[in-house]
Amino acid sequence: MTAAAAPADSRRVALADLLGPAARRNAWSLGLLGFLILLLVFTKLIEPRYGVTGIQGLAISVLPLALAAVAQAIVVISGGIDLSIGSIMALINVVSAVLMQGQSEEFGVAVVLGVLVLGLVIGAVNGGLVVVTRIPDIVVTLAMSFVWAGCALLVLPTPGGGSAKWLMDLVSGSLGNDWIPKAAVVLITVVALIWIPVRRSWLGLSFYATGSNRLAAFRSGVSIGRTKLLAYALMGLFAALAGLSLTASTGIGEPVPGPYTLLSVAAIVLGGVSLAGGRGGVFGPIVAVMILQIIRTDMTFLNVDTNLATVVQGLILIGVVMIGSLVQIRRARA
């Protein structure tokens, strides 16, 4: 469309016009990516030994939170929020660890498929409650976080259980080249296989439509209830994947939820997803998760107290979001 409007004699301008909207749409994510590269260079400078093992460690350690952030991003894009993601992850983690302990490798495949379905169901329960009760999403999912965490404790009171060998092999080590960690391949594959088809279908469109303007979406023929239910179910699926990645990376089940719920909210906001809904994607949040993790690594290299590292994480979160909102305020005025 823009290309046609551009002067025909200047191919360069036309190309810039073509690339322009795409770059502008993803400006925030691209900026984050640049920041991540800067951080990687900085890490290499302060710790010359940082290399293959560092990258592999980074990939494994970001996997659960990255998947949780994708889950959160999907719900927030469609206009909700889920504060029970951490609890769902814990539940899936313990269920898979208990079922897989001492069982055959083949049985592990069935367990993985089973808990993924369980994740879908759990997400659908959250979504169904939001749709049926019409209480704000934040309240429902906050209450459900107690329920799912309680279920996790019921399944496994103390840390334990085990994991199938192939599941643990799936995320540790590298694929072919040392620089391509398996965990990163898993992350990219899962997101590409599940999110991209959804994003490109009517379903993804109705997620964005519902999130950006519920009434307009309803009047355009989008079933709000069904969209929300499916968004939550998809969230449950990704939360289940995140929980499985916990099992895979630790090899055990841990019934007490980690700090993933709030960190996932922080990551999606850093990643350019608007909490008001309808804006953002899953690429930005994944990059944001890596940034949060690598800052933590840098702090250990610099011998900064880990508690101060928490402070710095909080400050970066606040600072980046402040900059983002300042940019928006100025754009609105201009």
Binding site: V265, N307, V312, G314, I318, M322, S325
Partner: peptide
């Protein structure tokens, strides 16, 4: 100031501030 002046979403502003306060208290 974050919520009022910079118009950061309160959820994220208080979340970040919680991290900062917790870290400082630990320190």
């Amino acid at each position: 100031i974050g919520v009022g002046v910079f118009r950061v979403h309160p959820l994220i502003m208080t979340l970040g501030m919680g991290l900062v306060v917790l870290g400082l208290a630990n320190f």
